[in-house]
């Protein structure tokens, strides 16, 4: 599964265009940033409602390549700028973390099968 699938397959809204498309190897769902740091894998996507700059910082440090903001949470311009600068794709959806996790889990499992 690729990052661009979030847009084309699931209809998530890209918070900026021209992000680097790459393969997504896994995912992690959490709103606790320390938990994300210790558990999220490389080249994974983060499903969260923490729509601020510090989420991007955490993603950069642990090698998360994309962030999905759930529940249509407002995303600050600062977060978008910072994601762009760090080369991390940023999406938003009205779905909950539970729903998004389910979708991604199935897609990743099918991709591996």
């Amino acid at each position: 599964m690729n990052i661009s699938d979030f847009q084309t397959r699931f209809g998530f809204e890209a918070m900026y265009d021209g992000y680097v498309d790459a393969e997504v190897l896994g995912g992690y769902t959490s709103d606790l940033l320390s938990d994300v740091m210790s558990k999220a894998g490389e080249a994974s996507t983060l499903v969260t409602i923490q729509a601020h700059k510090n989420t991007v910082a955490v993603a950069t440090l642990v090698g998360i390549n994309s962030i999905i903001i759930c529940n249509s949470r407002p995303v600050s311009a600062e977060m978008i700028e910072s994601a762009k600068a760090e080369g991390i794709a940023l999406f938003r959806t009205d779905k909950t973390q539970f729903e998004v996790s389910g979708l991604l889990y199935c897609a990743l499992r099918d991709a591996k099968a």
Binding site: D31, L32, L33, S34, D35, M37, S38, T48, Q50, H52, N54, T55
Partner: peptide, 11 residues
């Protein structure tokens, strides 16, 4: 903000 979960120092 997603901090202060008591995981910092242990991590």
């Amino acid at each position: 903000l997603g901090f202060g979960a008591g995981l910092g120092l242990p991590n």
